[in-house]
Amino acid sequence: MTHPLSGFPPALVRRLVIKIGSALLVDPDGQVRTDWLRTLVGDVAARVAAGQQVIIVSSGAIALGARRLKLPKGGRGSLEDAQAAAATGQIALSQCWASLLEERGITAAQMLVTLDDLENRRRYLNASATLERLMALNVVPVVNENDSVATAEIRFGDNDRLAARIGQAARADAVALLSDVDGLYTANPHVDAGAMLIDTIETIDEAILAMADGGSASGMGSGGMVSKIQAAKIATGAGAHLAILSGKVDAPLSRWANGGKGSIFLAAPGKGARKGWLAGRLTTLGRVVVDAGAERALGKGNSLLPAGVARVEGLFERGDVVDIVTQDGRVIARGLIEYDSDAAAKIAGRRSEEIAALLGEMHRSVLVHRDHMAMV
């Protein structure tokens, strides 16, 4: 039975993020697959005409730039090559999107972001406000990672997770990942003929995680099923549905809406905006390891008290984001820490009334307040 959300109809999905991978946009010779892209833009135009707001997350800049610069290994032989290829290819990519959307009477806008832009709360809110204004003006934003300045330390590494974070920033109702596979299978369908498609996923549990592998079938992109499931965790945790569907057909969104294959990860109950941002972060600056009692207390919605902390790892300042983990290494929450790493280590395992004596003054009775913490 087809799920009511199949195709992400405009009547049920007001705001949609669509991610397109490099292998779909660029052929092995480094040329834009213009004919295919025009069919996708037709899908976008139909949705915009039906009242759906659309944001595009587009890969392809490095692949395009590498061909123009005649760089080896698709421009990924070194960080410098990737940055140069991105800077060159991004112009061609944005021109292509602007031209094809203009043919349909749609104005395009370009947004380039780094991981840091969405991990920093102030810049995240700025990006969110820009997306909101563009959509209010009936513009289709085309977003890509700013690979010309991104380094290993400040990059998403794949546009699947970027799309999920953009969906979160834009308060999207759904995210569609166009891929070289048509959904999540019980095993890799490229190597296992018996693999079966899972059309609806309500919970991302260990069984779902075990079905993924990290390979990018095309060799051109940087993602795989692992990155797509990571993106699904971010999107669904922020209250957005996420779909994986094939882009290897013309007009892929229309094909899906008319009964084509795809997998939908259903949104979890929504978090508040601040907690959603925390839960969806890809970087943290430390870890607070807690005992079983603290884990149970956090599960009931309580703040993290120093008494429940077994140890503190990493270097961080007050207000930084840290992971809260169990003693066997499971990340169970993420939050804004009330103490720097030195002070946190001193009060770990101690009762709140001991803090003043240990630190010389009383600051906060909690290590991470529940209002500044998100379970993950």
Rank of each mutant, 00 (worst) to 15 (best):
R330W: 00
E338K: 15
R351S: 15
A343P: 01
I324G: 05
D340K: 09
G319L: 11
E354H: 11
R351E: 13
R318K: 13
A345F: 03
I324D: 00
F316L: 05
R330S: 09
K346W: 00
R350K: 15
F316A: 01
D328I: 11
D342G: 04
Q327C: 11
I347V: 07
V321G: 06
D328M: 11
S352N: 10
Q327Y: 11
G335Y: 12
I324P: 02
G319I: 00
I332K: 07
I337V: 13
D323A: 10
G329R: 13
G329Y: 09
I347A: 08
A345T: 01
R351A: 14
I347S: 07
R350H: 14
E354P: 09
I347R: 10
R350A: 14
Q327S: 00
V325Y: 06
V322Y: 00
G335I: 07
D320Y: 02
I332Y: 03
F316I: 02
A343G: 00
I337H: 05
G335A: 06
V321P: 04
D323W: 04
Y339V: 02
E317Q: 12
S341L: 10
E313G: 02
A345W: 09
G335W: 07
G319T: 01
V331A: 12
R334Q: 09
G329E: 13
S341W: 10
V325L: 10
A333W: 03
G319K: 05
I347M: 04
F316W: 01
A333T: 05
S341E: 05
V322T: 01
I332R: 08
A348R: 06
G319N: 09
E338M: 12
Y339E: 08
T326A: 09
I332A: 04
D340W: 01
E353R: 14
A345Y: 03
